[in-house]
Amino acid sequence: NITNLCPFDEVFNATRFASVYAWNRKRISNCVADYSVLYNFAPFFAFKCYGVSPTKLNDLCFTNVYADSFVIRGNEVSQIAPGQTGNIADYNYKLPDDFTGCVIAWNSNKLDSKVGGNYNYLYRLFRKSNLKPFERDISTEIYQAGNKPCNGVAGFNCYFPLRSYGFRPTYGVGHQPYRVVVLSFELLHAPATVCGPKKST
């Protein structure tokens, strides 16, 4: 009989979020998941679920829940969905086509923008091939755009693969920082350890 609540607040209220190319993952297990707390949290810009209804989450049990978190621009949030393409979905964070879970995003301009620009948040701009679902690539190898080998030196046709967002408070909404948490639900042939409040007695 599990009684402790799942530590969703640790994920959602973290002081610093990860850059999207180096997205953070927390495994959540052996706890009671009260999703209504999240669902009623006012400032969400997006709360979209795939393969599961957000209002039914509290009735369900899962083997594991993974909480992935990172920061992207407002106009990139739409790429955090199954079957998407674009710089983020291709080179930074890719969801599987059969994704079961929820994508939760909110504007973090007050936290993550600075006058003069916040350059701490990076994304991958160049990559030889697209990421596989949930693949994480933190390499900083110089990207070779031409035929000539770069030998690890940036220059003509040789690019550092990461780019900084440089968030400023005055940017338009599409270019403002958004914090994103992706909850993915794993249902294995194993005992369920993460259940909603109704199922955990």
Rank of each mutant, 00 (worst) to 15 (best):
residue 86 G to F: 04
residue 160 F to P: 14
residue 25 R to K: 03
residue 60 L to I: 09
residue 82 P to Q: 01
residue 65 V to P: 01
residue 172 G to A: 13
residue 105 A to Q: 02
residue 43 P to M: 04
residue 19 S to I: 00
residue 123 Y to L: 06
residue 188 L to T: 15
residue 139 S to H: 08
residue 197 P to R: 14
residue 51 G to H: 09
residue 50 Y to N: 01
residue 88 I to E: 00
residue 12 F to I: 05
residue 72 I to Q: 01
residue 140 T to N: 12
residue 130 N to C: 10
residue 37 V to C: 11
residue 56 K to D: 14
residue 153 V to D: 13
residue 120 N to S: 13
residue 160 F to W: 13
residue 190 A to Q: 14
residue 109 N to D: 10
residue 184 S to F: 08
residue 189 H to C: 08
residue 93 Y to Q: 01
residue 70 F to W: 01
residue 25 R to S: 03
residue 13 N to C: 02
residue 29 S to Q: 11
residue 95 L to H: 00
residue 39 Y to D: 15
residue 179 R to C: 05
residue 25 R to T: 03
residue 96 P to I: 00
residue 146 G to K: 08
residue 85 T to I: 08
residue 131 L to V: 10
residue 6 C to E: 05
residue 166 G to E: 15
residue 170 T to P: 07
residue 109 N to W: 06
residue 136 R to T: 05
residue 3 T to N: 09
residue 141 E to Q: 12
residue 16 R to S: 13
residue 86 G to Y: 01
residue 141 E to H: 11
residue 46 A to H: 15
residue 36 S to Y: 04
residue 54 P to L: 15
residue 100 T to A: 06
residue 113 S to A: 14
residue 141 E to G: 12
residue 140 T to P: 09
residue 109 N to L: 07
residue 175 H to A: 13
residue 98 D to F: 05
residue 195 C to D: 12
residue 158 C to N: 06
residue 98 D to G: 07
residue 53 S to E: 15
residue 28 I to V: 06
residue 31 C to M: 05
residue 200 S to A: 14
residue 120 N to K: 12
residue 178 Y to S: 04
residue 143 Y to G: 08
residue 5 L to V: 11
residue 86 G to W: 02
residue 5 L to P: 14
residue 111 L to T: 13
residue 133 P to V: 04
residue 107 N to E: 07
residue 38 L to N: 03
residue 181 V to G: 00
residue 195 C to K: 09
residue 41 F to M: 14
residue 198 K to G: 15
residue 130 N to Q: 13
residue 132 K to P: 06
residue 184 S to W: 13
residue 167 F to T: 05
residue 80 I to K: 02
residue 182 V to G: 00
residue 91 Y to A: 06
residue 172 G to C: 06
residue 164 S to P: 12
residue 197 P to D: 14
residue 55 T to D: 15
residue 183 L to R: 00
residue 86 G to R: 02
residue 151 N to T: 13
residue 83 G to S: 07
residue 57 L to M: 07
residue 158 C to L: 04
residue 63 T to S: 12
residue 110 K to L: 09
residue 10 E to I: 06
residue 18 A to P: 15
residue 11 V to D: 03
residue 9 D to P: 07
residue 67 A to C: 07
residue 51 G to C: 01
residue 176 Q to P: 02
residue 33 A to H: 05
residue 58 N to R: 09
residue 37 V to P: 06
residue 67 A to R: 01
residue 186 E to M: 02
residue 9 D to W: 09
residue 135 E to G: 08
residue 197 P to Q: 15
residue 146 G to P: 07
residue 37 V to D: 09
residue 170 T to S: 12
residue 190 A to H: 12
residue 154 A to T: 14
residue 5 L to D: 10
residue 46 A to N: 11
residue 159 Y to R: 13
residue 125 L to E: 15
residue 39 Y to R: 15
residue 119 Y to C: 09
residue 198 K to I: 12
residue 83 G to N: 14
residue 175 H to T: 11
residue 149 P to A: 13
residue 144 Q to C: 06
residue 69 S to R: 02
residue 139 S to P: 02
residue 148 K to L: 11
residue 183 L to T: 00
residue 161 P to K: 02
residue 95 L to K: 01
residue 75 N to S: 13
residue 34 D to H: 04
residue 200 S to P: 13
residue 95 L to E: 00
residue 98 D to H: 09
residue 126 F to D: 13
residue 56 K to M: 12
residue 125 L to M: 15
residue 112 D to K: 00
residue 39 Y to C: 08
residue 92 N to E: 02
residue 1 N to P: 10
